[in-house]
Design a protein around this nucleic acid. Structure first.
Lengths: 201, 201
DNA sequence: CAGCATAATGCACTCAGTGCAATAGTCTGC
DNA sequence: GCAGACTATTGCACTGAGTGCATTATGCTG
C-alpha cells in the first residue's frame, strides 16, 4: 500500500514530463531569440510563444539566460561521459580532443550549430554567461584528469589548468569558426589552437 | 580666443576629476560589498555611502557589476603594457609570466588582494562577469603575441589561444591561491599550471 | 555679474526575478 | 465515480537593476 506521504517515490513520470516541457520551452525560446535577438526579446514574449505563463516559465528556468544556455550544461555532461570512457592509458589531450567531438553528434547539422553559436556570441549580455557556463565543464573534467596525472604537489591545480586550457582552446576555435562562417572543420581549428599552446616557441 | 563651441577642447581637467570621482566611488563600493556581500548590497546603498544619487552612480558605471569589476580593465591594460615592453626575442610564455607580475605591484599588500579575490569568487553572480572581463585581456595580448609568432595558416587563432590559455592558467592559479588562503606565492602556482598544460603526459 | 557647458539629480518607466496564495489538474484508494 | 491529497500552473504584488528625459545646480569664461 502506498501511503500518501511517500516523498521517497516522486513518480519518475513527473520528472519525465517536466524534462520534456522544459526542453520544449527551451526550443521555443531559441527560435524566438534567433528571430528577434536575445536582448530585444522579453521573457514575457517567450512565455507567450511557448503557451505558458511568465511565472511558470520561471519555474522551469531560473533566469532568462538559462533559456539560452541550458543546452551547454547537457553538452558538458556528454563530453565528460565520453572522456570517462576513453582508454585509461591514452594521452590526455588525445582523450580530450575526442571527447569534444561528441558536439558533432548533438546538433544535427553544422548549419544549426553555426546558428546557435552565432546567437551566443551575438549578444554582449550572453557572452559572459556562455563563457562561464563552459568553464563549468572544467569541474566535470578535472577530477577525471587528475586521476591520470602523475603524483605531484599540485595535482588538483594541474588537472584544473589542463581542463580549463582545453576548454579555452575550444572556445577560441569556436569563435574563429563562427567568424569565418563555419566553412572549415571546427576540430581542425581546435587542434591548431592546442598545438600552438603546447608547442614551445 | 576660445570660442564657446570648441568641442575640440574638452578641458582635461574635467576628465581628470571624473576619473578621480569614479575611482572614489569604486573604492566605496568595494568597501560596502566586502562588508555586506555583493548580492546583499543594493546600488542605492552604494550611492548613499558614496554620497551621490543613484542616477549619478549610473553615470559613472554602466552596471552594478562594473562597480566591482572596473579594476580588472585597468589591470588588463597594465599587463598588456608590460608585455609590450618585454624583449622581443624572449620566449612568449616567459614574457607573459613577467607581464602578469605587475599584479603584485598594483594592490599594496597580498592580504588586500586576497580580500578582493575572495569577494570576486564569493558571489555566483559576479563570477561570470569576472571570468568574462579577464577573458577580454586576451584582446589586448593577442595582437602582440601574433607578431612574435612564426608564419602559419592560423596565426591569429594561435595567438588568441595562447593568450587565452595563459589567462586561464592565471585564473586557475588564483582560485587555488584563494582556496588555500594566499599562503603561497600566486606565481608559483601559475608556473605550475602552465607547466602542467604545456608538458606532454 | 551674465552666459554657457556640463554634471548631478529626480521622476517615471521597463524588465528580470521572487514570494505568496489561490486555482486547476491529476492520481490514489475506496 | 468520488473524496482526498499532492503538484503544476497561474495571478498578483513587490524588489531591484537599468534607462530616458527634463530640471536644477555648479563651475568656468569673458
Amino acid at each position: 500500500m502506498y501511503h500518501r506521504c511517500m516523498k521517497a517515490s516522486p513518480p519518475p513520470l513527473r520528472q519525465q514530463t517536466r524534462a520534456v516541457v522544459r526542453s520544449l520551452i527551451a526550443q521555443t525560446a531559441m527560435a524566438v531569440f534567433a528571430e528577434k535577438g536575445y536582448d530585444e526579446t522579453t521573457v514575457e514574449e517567450v512565455a507567450a510563444a511557448a503557451g505558458v505563463s511568465r511565472r511558470t516559465l520561471f519555474n522551469y528556468f531560473k533566469s532568462k539566460e538559462d533559456l539560452a544556455l541550458s543546452g551547454l550544461a547537457e553538452q558538458g555532461e556528454k563530453i565528460a561521459a565520453r572522456f570517462a570512457s576513453s582508454p585509461p592509458g591514452e594521452d590526455i589531450w588525445e582523450s580530450l580532443s575526442s571527447a569534444f567531438r561528441v558536439l558533432e553528434e548533438i546538433e544535427t547539422t553544422s548549419e544549426r550549430r553555426l546558428e546557435i553559436v552565432t546567437l551566443l556570441f551575438g549578444s554582449e549580455s550572453l557572452r559572459a554567461g556562455h563563457v562561464e557556463k563552459q568553464s563549468r565543464w572544467q569541474e566535470l573534467l578535472a577530477p577525471q584528469i587528475e586521476e591520470r596525472l602523475p603524483l605531484s604537489d599540485h595535482r588538483s591545480l594541474e588537472a584544473r589548468a589542463i581542463a580549463a586550457a582545453a576548454i579555452t582552446c575550444l572556445q577560441a576555435a569556436t569563435e574563429e569558426w563562427s567568424r569565418i562562417g563555419g566553412r572549415v572543420d571546427l576540430f581542425h581549428l581546435y587542434d591548431a589552437a592546442v598545438q600552438a599552446v603546447r608547442r614551445a616557441h
